[in-house]
C-alpha cells in the first residue's frame, strides 16, 4: 500500500469515525444546544467538536484529491517492506503477551514475551536472554507487587495458586 492510498483510507476512516461520534451523541439523547435554565447541554462539547473533526478530515480529503498534501504525492510504500516484518512481529508479540495475561498471568506472559523477543528477534544468547528475563520478572514483582502493593493479574486459578504461596512466604518472613 502506498502512502498516497494510506492517506485516502485514513481520511475516509476518520470522517466515518467522526460522524459515528456525532451519531453516538445523538442516540444517547444528549442535548447539543442551549438548555433553558441549565446552560449548554451535555452533548454540546462532543457533538460540535466531532463535527470539527469530520470537517478537518474532509479538508484533508479535498486536499488529497488536489494533491496538495505531501503524503498524497508520495507513492512510496506506507511501511517499507524490509522494516514491516520487524514492526509487525513486535506488535503481534506484544498483543500475544497481553492476551496471555488472562490465561497464564502477568509474570509467565512477560517472561515468554521477553524470552521470545530477545532470543528469536534479537538473536541474543541463551544466558543473556535468561538473565534479562529473570531480572525483569523479579524487578517487576519487587517494584509493583511488593513496594506498590499492586495486584497484577495472575491468570487462571492454577497459576494463581503458585503466587499465593509466594505471597504467603513474603508476608511471613519479610513484612
Amino acid at each position: 500500500m502506498s502512502t498516497r492510498t494510506a492517506e485516502l483510507l485514513a481520511s475516509i476512516a476518520l470522517i466515518v469515525f467522526s460522524l459515528g461520534l456525532m451519531w453516538t451523541v445523538h442516540t444517547d439523547g444528549l442535548k447539543i444546544g442551549w438548555v433553558p435554565e441549565r446552560g449548554p447541554g451535555s452533548g454540546v462539547w462532543p457533538f460540535w467538536l466531532s463535527l470539527g473533526m469530520a470537517l478537518t478530515s474532509l479538508w484533508t480529503l479535498v486536499r488529497w484529491f488536489r494533491r496538495t498534501t505531501p503524503e498524497s504525492r508520495n507513492e512510496a510504500p506506507y511501511i517499507e517492506s524490509d522494516r514491516f516484518g520487524l514492526v509487525a512481529i513486535s506488535f503481534i508479540a506484544l498483543t500475544a503477551m497481553i492476551f496471555l495475561v488472562a490465561i497464564v498471568g502477568t509474570y509467565i506472559s512477560i517472561a515468554l514475551f521477553l524470552g521470545f523477543y530477545m532470543r528469536f528477534v534479537g538473536k541474543h544468547s541463551w544466558p543473556m536472554t535468561s538473565a534479562t528475563v529473570l531480572g525483569a520478572v523479579i524487578s517487576i514483582y519487587f517494584l509493583f507487587e511488593w513496594q506498590l502493593s499492586k495486584y497484577l493479574p495472575k491468570g487462571l486459578p492454577m497459576f494463581e495458586d503458585g503466587f499465593l504461596w509466594l505471597d504467603n512466604f513474603r508476608w511471613e518472613y519479610f513484612m
Partner: peptide, 17 residues
C-alpha cells in the same frame, strides 16, 4: 531488541498498575 520488549512490558504494567 532488549530495549523494545522491556519498554513494552513497562507500558503494560504501568497502565495496569
Amino acid at each position: 531488541t532488549i530495549l523494545t520488549p522491556i519498554i513494552f512490558i513497562l507500558c503494560f504494567v504501568g497502565v495496569f498498575a
